[in-house]
Design a protein around this nucleic acid. Structure first.
Lengths: 254, 254
DNA sequence: CGCGAACTTGAGGCGTGTCAACCCCTGTGG
DNA sequence: CCACAGGGGTTGACACGCCTCAAGTTCGCG
């Protein structure tokens, strides 16, 4: 996999694969930071944000917990997990992140990242230097607004996860997880009837507070109940309404 | 308890008890929004932020999930819980909030609060109109910085809770909960050896993803193990190091 | 083609949940 | 001052959902 990039390959300040970013041409501009900006503002932001893209291979770390926090990252392609690690090495996945989502909010204030960010497949992120972002935020109210929206979306999402972890049974957790994934993919124009999982059963289980065997069993049960078509990591969503019903406390169906 | 306030009582726009706020005299100015501001900036903020205080009686709602989000709230005195509620009425407490902490970040972007906020004792909050805050954030880099710090602190705290809910056993959860409370109280100058719980066993359990009986049993066990002195809601922390050891995966002690 | 990782499935154990009885505080009214 | 009611808390017995351990299978990748 050569580190070739859009247009010129001349711009590559570090040894890591990077390239100049053009928000105005990006297909995620209606989801990501630039939402609501006029065309002029957008070009201005592009130039000022001097963001570069960075490639992160499958399994590689985008950043470590404790690293100096001088930038946020917008997922452009690929898929990430963010992980909290305790002193003793116990790990808890606190989020999965797909195209258009920002990573790194947890370290804004302290100046240190509070999680590890790891690519689950070969990915590319836009690097958003924090100092520039803060400065632009002061100049462009609309950008400030969108920044607030993205932060608060992260918080609201975390609250949903706490709800899941604090009050759902295994089957509900798995159903909620799949529906959430489905909704986010649909919002990005992908098929809502089929999901290719980017993470292992173990990672799903870790995120959901379950063991991998429980996740596997639950998926098998959903398969048997004709809610899903499980083929390894390729999951067909046969009955979204049925999954939703599980969440609504109606155990079976009807 | 009359709703008497600092200086004049003439300023009371609504029927609810309110009063003019003076950040410069507030004992929380080193924790709350004003951190890092110069004296001049502080007076400026006070005037521009035109914040009022609002009283919220024990059990009353500061705001409901779904309410229009036009302000953040800084806890001045008292204690709050924030609660996510599902369609079917299942509830999950996602946070407890004490003096100096801001509530309402989850609704910044959507314009709607994502949680209920309920006072656990008679409390007072400073109302921080969002529009003014955003505008001041653009003028004062230091205020912007502190705002980012407070948001990201909330996110990091949520990550810790996810860690707790996703990977800890009952005893570890309770120990972590108590230590967390202790640390936050100590940061506010309160005793670190004794905690008066503002919430019921049921609320602790809800927050920790446990049943109230399990919380009660665990507290009793800690009492028997001489880690705590449990007297109803008055908890003496006899052996903080022992509690910490529980979290570090060393089951007993030694 | 063959190794290792990921996944599935089963059997059995354990940590919490569930259900229920009882106790202890607090506040209220006689 | 005591009787009483009611909510919160404690404790016990038992059930059950998920974890643990283990074997076997499939898939991905070198």
């Amino acid at each position: 996999m050569a580190d070739m990039v859009i247009g010129t390959a001349a711009f590559r300040p570090l040894h890591m694969a990077t390239c100049k970013v053009q928000c105005s041409n990006c297909n995620l501009r209606e989801i990501c930071i630039p939402v609501g900006l006029t065309r002029e503002e957008l070009t201005y932001v592009e130039n000022r944000l001097v963001a570069v893209r960075r490639k992160v291979g499958r399994g590689e770390m985008l950043f470590h917990s404790g690293d100096a926090h001088d930038a946020l990252f917008a997922v452009w392609t690929g898929f990430f997990k963010t992980v909290v690690t305790s002193e003793q090495g116990r790990e808890q996945i606190v989020g999965f992140h797909m195209a258009g989502e920002l990573i790194g909010f947890g370290g804004l204030g302290s100046g240190r990242h509070d999680v590890d960010a790891i690519a689950l497949e070969d990915s590319q992120v836009c690097v958003i230097p924090y100092a520039e972002l803060a400065s632009l935020e002061r100049e462009l109210p609309q950008l400030q607004k969108q920044f607030h929206t993205l932060v608060s979306r992260e918080i609201a999402a975390d609250h949903e996860v706490m709800f899941l972890l604090g009050s759902m049974h295994a089957e509900e957790r798995v159903a909620a997880f799949l529906l959430n994934l489905m909704h986010r993919l649909r919002a990005r124009g992908f098929s809502a009837s089929s999901v290719l999982l980017r993470m292992s059963r173990g990672e799903i289980g870790n995120f959901l507070g379950l063991k991998l065997e429980t996740v596997s069993r639950t998926l098998s049960k959903f398969h048997a109940d004709k809610l899903l078509d499980v083929r390894q990591r390729q999951i067909g969503i046969l009955d979204p309404a049925g999954l939703q019903r599980l969440l609504d406390g109606l155990p079976a169906a009807r």
